[in-house]
Design a protein around this nucleic acid. Structure first.
Ligand SMILES: NC(=O)c1ccc[n+]([C@@H]2O[C@H](COP(=O)([O-])OP(=O)(O)OC[C@H]3O[C@@H](n4cnc5c(N)ncnc54)[C@H](O)[C@@H]3O)[C@@H](O)[C@H]2O)c1
Ligand SMILES: NC(=O)c1ccc[n+]([C@@H]2O[C@H](COP(=O)([O-])OP(=O)(O)OC[C@H]3O[C@@H](n4cnc5c(N)ncnc54)[C@H](O)[C@@H]3O)[C@@H](O)[C@H]2O)c1
Lengths: 210, 210
DNA sequence: CGCGGCTTGTGAAAAACTTCACGAATGTAG
DNA sequence: CTACATTCGTGAAGTTTTTCACAAGCCGCG
């Protein structure tokens, strides 16, 4: 049923899901038009996006809110819980792990690793910080599937390699480098400097256009 | 010379720039092939991206590293310094403002706003936290051009509106909502939950493909 | 100075993605 | 039961972005 789904489609699906959450009556229905209005896109785009995965609507009526929500959660793979480890208990990593919305969205924070002697043994975000030497064992014992990698640039590739080797299924990477991992293991990069640069580009560009 | 530059091109330019930073001899040259290798793209793509803005290379030789770096910085609008304010001195906002790479990249943190009485008056990231009531004056007096918006969902639209009204030129938004601002003011959204969902989608999908 | 090995810059072709437009369902009202 | 007003699902058309392929330019060397 599904072949190659555009990246942009996945992003929009995530948006649709969020739009549905903050919705009036869960028993109600929503049209592609309404959904598009909340997402900076078009009704046709909404329908096309969804059509990659099946037919979830009723003609003349729209989509049942609760039903579509369940389908989206299933499509995005969050109709289950994911076990997540934080590697690097620094500023950005802890900000994430202390953010309540993650748990609410299906991601369970189950372990934190950091070699800093001042952090090992202390409690952060409700978890004891462990030295990375025990990382591989923990992946196995705790069934860790996702890693949030928030370590300094120099340590990122090494820890990514160890994560993959240990059987981790995906990595959310904050280090500003391109990780070298097998193509079967998806990596999402978050590069905040790049976002700022996109902003200054857009501002600067606006002045240059005629 | 420039018309409509694809978003993906801007992201790649940012990448090229970073690749050039960590480069051996600044006097040396680099080919589109080498640049592509570090960026998960192709040589043709590199040349096409750059060709939107001019001809920076020498045939048979490649690009002078220092020269290309200067061009990229100019294209991205970071051949100058930007004055940035943080709105919302929470976990994610402070993680950013305490991150040294921003200053190094041309962004100066000049003010922090937060209404929390326990935070107002204290020093964070080297700056005194101010109540948002003084926001508009500060934008004018300090020449603030960019805002990092890291406030709770409910306050995001209001503060975005105030920022635009006060003359801010761009917003980096962490709140998981679509801000309603005039089209002339660029907004970059950072949505970390969406990144995680893209990850679980990719993992789940891998299982479904035949 | 002319030749040969490289590498850029760029139209043209291909691929990917978005928008259009309309037939087919579905519910409602009379 | 029929007419009607909706809204989906989807092939086809249109647009954007990427890839291809090659002439043109540059360097070094004999
Ligand atoms: N803070 C930001 O706003 C920001 C923005 C963009 C990118 N980043 C990137 O995110 C990463 C983390 O940034 P940060 O600001 O949180 O840094 P930080 O210095 O606050 O935290 C990094 C943590 O990683 C730990 N660490 C070092 N080696 C490790 C290892 N092998 N295994 C586990 N932990 C290890 C350190 O002890 C430290 O606690 C960096 O790569 C940085 O470039 C951060
Ligand atoms: N922490 C994360 O990892 C994370 C991840 C994704 C998204 N976000 C989003 O980022 C935003 C901030 O998250 P956080 O975790 O830093 O929250 P936080 O609660 O730690 O910080 C929010 C801060 O904003 C301040 N604030 C409230 N109203 C304000 C106003 N009108 N003007 C200025 N400041 C105001 C609060 O006093 C608080 O200090 C939220 O919208 C959140 O959804 C955070």
């Amino acid at each position: 049923m599904t072949r190659k789904i555009p990246d942009s489609t996945v992003r929009r699906l995530s948006h649709y899901l969020r739009s549905l959450e903050g919705f009036q009556e869960p028993g109600g229905t929503v049209s592609s038009e309404e959904l598009a209005a909340r997402g900076q896109t078009t009704a046709a785009q909404v329908r096309k996006d969804l059509s990659h995965f099946g037919s979830f609507g009723k003609r003349g009526l729209g989509y049942r809110v609760d039903e579509l929500r369940a389908h989206l959660r299933s499509i995005l793979g969050i109709d289950r819980r994911w076990r997540v480890a934080l590697v690097g208990a620094g500023r950005i990593g802890l900000a994430l792990f202390e953010y309540p919305a993650f748990r609410a969205r299906g991601y369970d924070c189950v372990a934190i690793f950091d070699p800093d002697p001042e952090k090992v043994g202390t409690v952060r975000a409700g978890l004891v910080v462990h030295d990375p030497s025990g990382f591989e064992d923990a992946v196995r014992d705790l069934g860790i599937e996702l890693v949030i990698l928030a370590v300094p640039e120099g340590a990122a590739q090494e820890m990514a390699g160890r994560a993959v080797e240990a059987g981790v299924k995906g990595i959310l990477n904050f280090a500003p480098i391109r990780l070298n991992v097998p193509p079967l293991v998806p990596v999402e990069d978050v590069n905040l400097v790049m976002e700022l640069e996109a902003l200054s580009f857009a501002i600067t560009q606006a002045g240059h256009e005629e």
